[in-house]
Simulated scan of single mutants.
Amino acid sequence: MLIMTNAIRTQTENGVAGFGELASLMGLMTGAEKHGPAATSTLDALWVLYDRVLRVSPETAKDPGRDRFLLSKGHGPMAYYAVLAAKGFFPRTWLPDFGTYDSPLGHHPDRTLVPGAEIGSGSLGHGLPLAVGTALGLRAQGLDDPAVWVLVGDAELDEGSNHEAIAYAGAAGLSRLHTLVIDNSSATHGWHGGIAAQFQAAGWSAVTVDGRDHEALHRAFTAPHPGRPHAVVAQVEPKDTGEPKVA
């Protein structure tokens, strides 16, 4: 990862960073290099969501009408933290202390410590069931407008809890529920017919796109899916170890 120079640091201390600066922000966080691929594989999709899709900001982070984003793939959260910092949810000065004893930015996100984080995550297989529960809770309160998004990894889908959540959400017609699957071909078993086909078989709308193509991601994220939950499978290079491209 790149190390942020003093010049870039000065430029990004004020205002919202662009996508091209995220690698530098990620470079401030060290000590979790073994989870680097888990972070860089998500960066493009996370940026498009927060920059162009999600209706949530630091000012509306507690508003009942906000969109919810749940990071189920909680290991390797550096990309998530970089995007939240770039969007002003917390100061960028927190990033160099990532993973230290007194830092709110742990190796797994903690919703009680990280502004903008909806759940504590890292134990795989929990995020999608929590997203289903969130969508059901909003429906019960009559809050039909907020969208619920959850990001999972392809290997995480091996967890049985996710199969149950997918089956239930499709049957319940949770149309405000969206699952973003980052597919870097790391699953042990794989899914016969492809990941999207499994969601479709359970009654979901689903599409597979290039996880590095920002325009394709945006089209997939905003595709209409009346009466059904929606899944976007974002394919990236297997076990990505490279730096994200600049859009």
Rank of each mutant, 00 (worst) to 15 (best):
A220P: 00
L177I: 10
A79N: 05
V232N: 02
H126C: 11
G99Y: 07
D183G: 08
E215F: 06
K73N: 13
T241I: 06
Y80A: 02
G106C: 01
A247I: 12
G88Q: 07
D102H: 14
A147M: 10
E156K: 09
G211M: 01
H189N: 12
G120S: 15
A147E: 10
L157S: 05
A216L: 03
A155D: 11
S121F: 07
R212E: 14
D102P: 00
S175P: 00
T208F: 02
Y50A: 13
H35I: 03
M4I: 14
R111I: 00
D51W: 02
F98K: 09
G160S: 10
P109F: 04
T42I: 00
W149D: 03
G27S: 11
K245V: 13
P226W: 12
T30A: 09
G31R: 08
F19K: 15
A231C: 06
A7V: 14
P146F: 02
H178A: 07
S186T: 15
S185W: 01
V232E: 00
L71N: 05
H75Q: 12
H178T: 12
A223C: 02
R219S: 11
L180V: 14
T134C: 07
A79F: 02
S185G: 01
E33C: 03
P238S: 01
G173N: 11
A206N: 00
M29C: 07
D110L: 11
H225F: 08
Y50G: 13
A202D: 10
Q141K: 14
G65K: 13
Q11T: 11
K245I: 12
L157T: 07
A231K: 01
G106L: 05
Q200K: 15
V83S: 09
I166C: 03
A85E: 10
P96R: 13
R176A: 14
F69P: 04
G133L: 07
W204N: 08
D240N: 10
G211F: 00
E13Q: 11
T93W: 09
R212S: 13
V209H: 03
A45Y: 05
V181C: 13
L43R: 04
E13H: 08
A231G: 00
L22G: 01
V236D: 04
A172P: 02
K239N: 12
E33D: 14
